[in-house]
């Protein structure tokens, strides 16, 4: 058992390393492996003879592809981790981070920022990405907090009520987004639509840091609750009888997911299916033990998103597909396949 998981982690680590290298090397301008190694050597302090190709490679890698790869890595990892957390919270292997309203809240926040900003006469180019991110993040957190409040009764959180409240609020948010869509002019509409399809385009270090920090925190925090999550799968009372503070655990799971998904959506738009599919596949491979499942999902989620981004960049090069289309194209049929196979 332990041996199997070591082998799995070596495999997932290798796949992720390959995904990162390919993300840095491939694109409209291909960078040779030799130059990539030189750039990396230089980055860690080696003295490397300069050539024009190397200088160009360094510029592309450090300014465009590295932030983009880091963004993909963080978004993929945090979405997969949130998926595990939600499937544990709802004790249902088909649960998705979107269930607690964080995605619809973030989409509403983004619509407010994009359309509202345009109606107020336009926000300056330099600021608009930040305002968009902040509004999306706040929207996700706000709606999730509301869903959590609605699920509470007599000091207890009822996850079934939360689930239904999440559906109701998602519908409300959808109506509000529809209203903004109706009010928007053509250019704004285009921004809004593309944002909803998700993209790692336009990654910059300034917008990357908050997401990296949150991903790091979530990736450190959730594995500390792996045993409690295992017990929670038995049922809430059972987990309580095994000595776990279940109410606190549920609050932490909702909070981690709201932060993680909120930050991911704020940085890269709506990217579906990672949180659903990645934990699912890994559960088939290593079983439902969260001590293995959580770190494995983080690694696999990061890899999958990087590969999806590669596909999004290369399939129609030099044009670029929104990554949400790619993940949905991979994710939806796969999800159907799992449903029909019916062994979770």
């Amino acid at each position: 058992m332990l041996n199997t998981s070591y082998r799995l982690f070596v495999l997932l680590g290798t796949v992720l390393a390959v995904a990162i290298v390919l993300s840095l090397a491939l694109g409209p301008v291909s960078i040779s492996l030799q130059n990539l190694v030189m750039v990396l050597l230089r980055a860690v302090g080696f003295d490397v003879a300069s050539t024009p190709a190397l200088e160009q490679a360094q510029l592309i890698v450090s300014q465009i592809r590295l932030p983009r790869a880091l963004l993909g890595l963080a978004v993929g990892a945090v979405l997969a981790l949130s998926g595990v957390a939600m499937q544990g919270l709802f004790r249902n292997p088909l649960a998705d981070p979107g269930l607690i309203g964080v995605s619809s809240g973030a989409a509403l926040g983004a619509a407010v920022a994009i359309v509202g900003g345009a109606m107020l006469g336009g926000i300056s180019e330099a600021w608009s990405p930040y305002i968009l991110s902040i509004c999306a993040f706040a929207g996700g957190l706000g709606v999730t907090a509301l869903v959590y409040r609605l699920g509470r009764r007599d000091g207890q959180t009822h996850v079934a009520t939360m689930l239904l409240a999440g559906i109701a609020l998602a519908a409300l948010a959808g109506a509000a987004i529809g209203l903004f869509t109706y009010l928007a002019d053509d250019a704004t509409l285009r921004t809004l639509t593309f944002w909803n399809l998700g993209s790692l385009n336009g990654a910059s270090y300034a917008r990357l840091w908050p997401l990296l920090l949150i991903t790091f925190a979530v990736a450190l925090w959730l594995p500390r609750r792996a045993k409690a999550l295992n017990a929670l799968l038995l049922g809430e009372s059972e987990a309580r009888h095994l000595g776990f503070a279940v109410e606190k655990l549920k609050r932490e799971l909702v909070f981690c997911t709201a932060l993680g998904v909120g930050a991911a959506v704020a940085a890269a738009g709506m990217i579906g299916f990672i949180g659903l599919v990645v934990p699912h596949v890994l559960r088939l491979a290593v079983g439902p033990d969260h001590r293995v499942l959580l770190p494995a999902s983080a690694l696999a989620g990061a890899s999958l998103l990087l590969f999806a981004d590669l596909a999004a960049r290369l399939l129609l090069a030099p044009a670029e597909l929104p990554i949400g289309i790619v993940t949905a194209l991979i994710g939806a049929p796969f999800f159907l396949y799992l449903l029909l196979k019916s062994r979770f």
Partner: peptide, 10 residues
């Protein structure tokens, strides 16, 4: 408890 709702392949 009387019933268990465990739905994962442990």
């Amino acid at each position: 408890p009387q019933h268990s709702t465990l739905n994962f392949a442990f």
